[in-house]
Design a protein around this nucleic acid. Structure first.
Length: 423
RNA sequence: GGAGAGGUGGCCGAGAGGUCGAAGGCGCUUGACUCGAAAUCAAGUGUGGGUUUCACCCACCGUGGGUUCGAAUCCCACCCUCUCCGCCA
């Protein structure tokens, strides 16, 4: 959520920043509602002050006296007015919040301009495309031959865009989970968290999924809960409505969870294989930092996700998303795109974002600054480290052999009982 | 799922229609005492908002409604916690 006080002071700055996202925003309405809001607050405060003064007078008065009756009539009138102003305030605040909750975060100044992914900028690449002396296959073919996935039965027991992983593929998911969590907890200093996979609406609002992207979520309406679309939601909301100790910052969490997405509006895209699923597993990285530390933390967090790809020997590139391609809550995002030889394309395998204070303001996550003083909003960050299904895809396609087998990256072998090859 | 008890400041805990942002204690901070520490004494110690911003004012006793001139206190609904029973991995 954007800060209404800052909007009030410099609407033009906000208008220009959101225009970079391709979003035309008219702040006149918001500012007018805000002015009305403050006027209502002042009116309400005055009335309450009058009320409490009248009440003081009543305390000493004889209940039979004319004075008391006069006071009581005055109180009646004030109470009625308070009720009216309170109703107006409620309506006003709902209107204001309703608008503010649908406004996206301001893009960071440093990021490239552009309307869509074509304007994204490649910052760096790691490794090189592997060479094959045969035509590399897509993971679906590779998996079919090795009996790794059962797409048909997944549809039978659930529906399309779900997959059953079998044998070595299921084992590899488990191995990747353990491998990634181990690296992040030991080498990168994250605390492991296993959160609920169902969360309430307040949590979905805190990180920015609700209200604007409600149609993307699987909801259990009977219970008022949603399946998490990413571990970001439960893990960031761990500290909702909290004031963190300065000494505890940065707080760094890593969590393995399944993620559930409706993929509304993606009909026809990536219909084959594991790339786009209603359910996928992911190891997530989440950080809470002081405002002045978030940019450096963003670089570091991206590096933590990269370390996994590097350890697995996978060629990838780091992309700085342009203003038009940025997610709703993010001020800056680096995507990690892994090379998929079977597809002959780079595909997103991780997305690392700095949200600034946008989520912190929605979720009221603060810290006590140096030397005490008023609590300040933290900055929140997160990134996939990594999406596990897509990592399986990348391993299958990059490590495939002419005979149809797949070598297992060395770093992963000990997590797969010493297995060196799937054949 | 059924029955009962309960949700008050960082924590414990009083308050049971008006004098209550809320006693008392613990904790924490600062000062005094001390060579220093402990003990003791004194003062301070929540969050949000508004404004005419070294100050003043308003709100907040689980959440939302209601009764009343007036609600932490009475009524209703919901949420949560605890105990017992049932069920269950």
């Amino acid at each position: 959520m954007l800060d209404i006080r800052e909007i009030r002071q410099s609407p033009e700055r906000f208008r220009r920043a959101l225009a970079r996202r391709g979003q035309q925003t008219n702040f006149e309405e918001v500012i007018a509602i805000d002015a009305e809001r403050r006027a209502l607050i002042q009116r309400a405060d005055q009335l309450r002050q009058a009320k409490s003064e009248t009440e003081k007078g009543m305390r000493g008065a004889d209940k039979q006296s004319a004075e008391f009756t006069e006071f009581r009539d005055k109180m009646r009138q004030v109470a009625q007015e308070i009720k009216e102003v309170a109703a107006a305030q409620k309506e006003n605040e709902e209107r204001l919040r309703g608008i503010l909750l649908t406004l996206p975060n301001l893009p960071a100044e440093a990021i490239p301009d552009g309307a869509d992914e074509h304007a994204n900028v490649v910052l760096r690449t790691f490794g090189e495309k592997p060479q094959f002396d045969f035509e590399p296959k897509e993971h679906v073919e590779i998996g079919e031959r090795l009996g790794l996935f059962d797409f048909e039965r997944a549809v039978k027991i659930s529906r399309s865009r779900f997959t059953v992983s079998m044998g070595a593929a299921a084992h590899m998911e488990r191995a990747l989970m353990a491998f990634m969590l181990d690296m992040h907890t030991t080498a990168h200093g994250y605390t492991e968290v296993l959160p609920p996979f169902l969360v309430n609406a307040e949590s979905m609002e805190g990180t920015g999924q609700f209200p604007k992207f409600r149609e993307d979520a699987f909801e259990l309406e009977r219970d008022g809960l949603s399946l998490i679309p990413t571990a970001e939601v439960p893990v960031t909301n761990l500290h909702r409505d909290e004031i963190l100790e300065l000494a505890s910052l940065p707080v760094k969490y890593t969590a393995y969870t399944p993620c559930f997405r409706r993929e509304a509006g993606s009909y026809g895209r990536d219909t084959r294989g594991l790339i786009r699923q209603h359910q996928f597993q992911k190891v997530e990285l989440v950080q809470f930092t002081r405002p002045e530390d978030s940019e450096a933390a963003h670089e570091a967090l991206t590096g933590h996700a990269e370390a996994i790809l590097q350890a697995l020997g996978l060629h990838y590139r780091v992309v700085d998303l342009c203003a038009g391609d940025l997610g709703f809550s993010a001020q800056r995002t680096y995507d990690l795109e892994v090379w998929l030889p079977g597809q002959g394309a780079y595909r997103e395998i991780s997305s690392c974002s700095n949200f600034g204070d946008f989520q912190a303001r929605r979720a009221a996550i603060r810290y006590r600054p140096e030397g005490g003083g008023k609590p300040q909003l933290v900055h929140t960050l997160n990134g996939s480290g990594l999406a596990i299904g897509r990592t399986v895809v990348a391993i299958l396609e990059n490590y495939q052999q002419a005979d149809g087998g797949v070598l297992i990256p060395e770093a992963l072998q000990k997590y797969m009982g010493g297995m060196k090859i799937i054949s």
